[in-house]
């Protein structure tokens, strides 16, 4: 198999990797924000379970979480969703895992905001949700963007864990090719793909940070 063929094969499976990456981000960022609200809630009935969820997600391996999400329904309830559930299980496991990390980032950002911003907004008559979405959140995003960038770069690499459920993303594919060809080349090519992908991601986020450089 020529290098070009390897690149072409991996390029196809890169689509799956990209899909895992994008779906995870789209789900876990808003979910993380919601979770951070639960984590900061004044109601202990909400705060404690949410804290426990964050703690478990951050304290156990993503690989284990993937397996639990995929096999859990069968072992716990005897329900079998069939092979189409593989990809869904990957999305669910990644989303709930990353939401926990993002929640902690959102929380630290929100809690770092000076009280005076809320007080000024309140006396100007802004509602709570207006205050949050127009005044607090934009400033929080600027503050937490570097931490978000770190997580997103980790996510690019973590997509490879989908191999646990034999989803044909790029890493699974590269391993299969390497085994079939008894060559390490496919793994190097996959590594190059990840590296370039991450380079692009880092560039995009650096651009975003620069865009927000207009104040403070």
């Amino acid at each position: 198999m020529s290098l070009l063929q390897i690149v072409a094969e991996l390029w196809q499976s890169f689509g799956v990797t990209l899909q895992i990456f994008l779906v995870t981000l789209i789900l876990s960022l808003p979910l993380g924000l919601l979770v951070s609200f639960g984590r900061m809630s004044g109601n202990p009935l909400l705060r404690y379970p949410v804290s426990a969820y964050i703690s478990v997600m951050r304290g156990t391996p993503l690989m284990l979480q993937l397996i639990v999400v995929y096999f859990g329904p069968y072992y716990l309830f005897g329900i079998s969703f069939g092979p189409a559930y593989r990809m869904t299980a990957v999305f669910i496991a990644f989303a709930v895992n990353y939401a926990a990390y993002f929640a902690e980032i959102f929380r630290s950002g929100i809690q770092s905001m000076p009280k005076g911003q809320y007080e000024a907004a309140r006396l100007l008559g802004y509602s709570r949700s207006q205050t949050f979405f127009y005044i607090i959140l934009p400033q929080v995003i600027k503050r937490i963007l570097p931490s978000i960038t770190n997580e997103v770069i980790t996510l690019v690499k973590d997509t490879a864990f989908a191999f646990t459920l034999s989803v044909m993303e790029m890493f699974t594919k590269a391993k299969a090719l390497a085994a079939g060809q008894t060559s390490i080349l496919p793994l190097f090519v996959a590594g190059a793909f990840y590296y370039i992908f991450n380079y692009a991601v880092a560039y995009l986020f650096a651009y975003g940070e620069k865009k927000l450089d207009y104040y403070q």
């Binding site: 000076p114 005076g116 911003q117 007080e119 000024a120 907004a121 006396l123 100007l124 008559g125 802004y126 207006q130 127009y134 005044i135 934009p138 400033q139 600027k142 104040y215 403070q216």
Partner: peptide
């Protein structure tokens, strides 16, 4: 109505001066 001026100003740093002055008038009032 009343308004308040704080010791630490508490302006909204991500908004221009004009938006700081007018946003609540437009959005709230």
């Amino acid at each position: 109505r009343f308004g308040m001026v704080f010791q630490q100003f508490n302006l909204f740093p991500h908004w221009t001066v004009l938006r700081n002055v007018t946003d609540a008038v437009i959005r709230v009032q």
